[in-house]
């Protein structure tokens, strides 16, 4: 990884995640947790599930944003120190999905937060989720390289 200093390389090597459910049916949440099991073992890439916004680099959000969870989502996002990425997991998180037109739903995550990567699927497969994190890191790397120019 030419051109990146140790801190910037560290960002690519150690993405700690926090997973937040804004009101999903729990399908996508189970797939997120499946990534942490021995079968998929995301700790290979230094990914740790921290469950603490203050230690978060990658924010995994599942489910449509309900009116009730909206403020909590914003609070959690603001508590995370930058640089951070937001990944929307599942059709619901991308657009509201099957719940899109419900009276209590605001829509996808991107109505509230700037989303960096969308992972479609109902539910999103663990492989797709890992791929999404890799794409997010690629994006971060390119951003850091561009900032150098």
């Amino acid at each position: 990884m030419a051109g990146l200093n140790l801190i910037e390389q560290g960002r690519l090597h150690s993405p700690w995640i926090t997973h937040f459910d804004t009101g999903s049916c729990n399908g996508c949440d189970i797939e997120v947790l499946a990534c942490l099991t021995p079968k998929f073992d995301v700790e290979r890439f230094g990914i740790l599930n921290k469950g603490n916004p203050k230690h978060t680099d990658v924010f995994l959000v599942t489910g449509p944003v309900t009116k009730r969870s909206k403020q909590r989502l914003i609070n959690l996002y603001e508590q995370a120190p930058g640089p951070k990425v937001v990944i929307a997991i599942g059709s619901c998180a991308c657009s509201g999905g099957v719940y899109g037109d419900c009276y209590n739903v605001e829509g996808g995550i991107d109505q509230i937060l700037p989303v960096d990567v969308y992972i479609p699927g109902c539910a999103a497969k663990p492989e797709a989720i890992i791929d999404g994190v890799v794409v997010a890191l690629e994006k971060l790397k390119n951003l850091m390289l561009e900032a150098k120019k």
């Binding site: 801190i7 560290g10 230094g46 508590q79 640089p83």
Partner: peptide, 15 residues
């Protein structure tokens, strides 16, 4: 891995 974690944490926004 622990060293990468430390490098990354050093570069995080201070809160």
């Amino acid at each position: 891995q622990p060293f990468w974690d430390i490098f990354k944490l050093l570069g995080k926004q201070s809160m």
